[in-house]
Design a binder for these strands. Structure first.
Lengths: 123, 123
DNA sequence: TTGACATATTCCCATATAAGAATGTATTGT
DNA sequence: ACAATACATTCTTATATGGGAATATGTCAA
């Protein structure tokens, strides 16, 4: 099997850095394609293609207005990704705690009789 | 240009569902490859390849122990993803608020003089 | 109608999968 | 040394990019 399509889900869609840029840009307010092209600095067909991917997985909404198309980020579609990554939060906090505890233990050991151990360049 | 490599960053690496499964499994505790194979239910070479991708982008740590290799999720490497998705949180909350406000306005309008509007099937 | 403008779509191509099969490598027990 | 165990790597193949160039589609304005 080949790699899953970029349009298969939000995880695949946001793997592309340009699409993340577009999402960040469009979350503040609705924009037409030309504005995105100017803001992101890539050519119009590429922007349209990225918007197509984002739209297909529901990460952006689109409405027509005359000859313009107005896109905006559908933030709600990002929430599941936030929740998935959030399931790891307690574990990275554990890691931080362990690092902090080691550091504090080290500090007190040094404070006892190792003052002045660091070379000046590190201060 | 082709699609970016799965090993180019964490966003690309987690796009694959099996790799997300593996990360969830390995975050609880260190495991050897054979355990992952049994738990996830895919063949050993595939697991090894997925582990290779995850390891290359720093999403898992590995240590050797005799003929075993013990892998565990490096939760800290997931934090940046959580933070990126978190930048959209205020926006999806806004959306929710708007939905809620509309619903509440609707309720009070109905409560005033439209009681009994819903068909029984919806209650 | 005829342009002009805003976007989308198609075609081409170099590149990168992911799964399956087969094989290679390292380590342990005897 | 040798067989068994635990993993990793290589090869093949069907499939899917993403960028660039060219072209098509849809809408407004005169």
């Amino acid at each position: 099997m080949a790699r899953a399509s970029t349009t298969s889900d939000a995880f695949n869609a946001i793997a592309e850095p340009r699409r993340r840029q577009i999402l960040s840009y469009l979350v503040v307010q609705e924009r037409q394609v030309g504005e995105i092209v100017a803001a992101i600095g890539i050519d119009q067909p590429s922007v349209s293609k990225h918007l197509g991917v984002l739209h297909k997985v529901g990460l952006v909404h689109m409405r027509r207005n005359g000859r313009h198309r107005l896109y905006r980020t559908n933030a709600a579609a990002i929430q599941p990704l936030h929740e998935w990554t959030g399931t790891f939060e307690r574990y990275w906090k554990h890691q931080l705690n362990r690092v902090k505890e080691r550091a504090e233990a080290q500090m007190s050991r040094e404070g006892a009789n190792n003052a002045g151990t660091f070379p000046k360049e590190n201060l």
